[in-house]
Amino acid sequence: MSAYTWWLAIGFLVLGPLVGALLAGIDRILTARMQSRKGPPLLQPVYDVLKLLEKDTLVVTHLQSLYLWGFLFFMLISGFILFLGSDLLLSLFALTVSGIFLCLAAYSTNSPYSNIGSARELMLTMAYEPMLIMVALGFFLVSGSFRVSDIVQGSPWQVLQLGGILIGFLFVLTIKLRKSPFDLSASHHGHQELVKGITTDLSGTDLALVEIGHWYENVILLGWLYLFFAPWGLAVALPISIVLFFAEVLVDNTHARLTWSSALRVSWWVTVLFGVTNLLVLPLIGHSS
């Protein structure tokens, strides 16, 4: 932990939403272009959230806001840990807890759409969680530490050593970003059978909190992706990770939604085939630590 990482972590707390909003804005423009539309302005996500903050908030139960605070709080903690260069597993844990709080918020409203949304969200958590752990374990095996600051200074070959894990991670990234074919819990296009799934009964400020939370989450995920390439230095690693990040938009626009059972099955198979296998053969590819 140096002064630099402290600045990074604080920078995440302050600028995280802005970066996240830009990512979301680019995402929306890209999607529009792929559908040969012009798309919204870059800052559209920011306008959306500022508007939501202006609006009244209707709640089904007052407690739902409490759970949303929990969601945002743990999201902040997760990113803070990551950018502080501290423990990757701990960051992952906080991320999971934050996801559970979001589900609780939706569950607490007890409307059928929210219920289905949150149940599916939990199922997706169950689907991607093992793979995310594999990522942390993979980093541990190549760099000998769970600490982000050590991973960043790992060997330049770690991407190759962790090739399988990277594939697995990109796979679950689709789930984490709630992209098709895994947009089971809250579809981006609301006028569907699921309505808005997990966020159906959130409105105004509550919904704005969720959006801000997702912005932070996107930054965190981009951070995770960046870790794979980090030893190559910022100038190379950041563009690569951003390109890979937006490759998810392509996947989003070219796939139909899967059922929950196939989503679960497929992601666990990917975890085993790419994640676990990669870890098992890692000693053969050579340790660097």
Binding site: V60, T109, Y113
Partner: peptide, 9 residues
């Protein structure tokens, strides 16, 4: 927070 209550969707 002082929010108005409304039934679920």
């Amino acid at each position: 927070p002082q929010y108005a209550e409304v039934s679920g969707y």
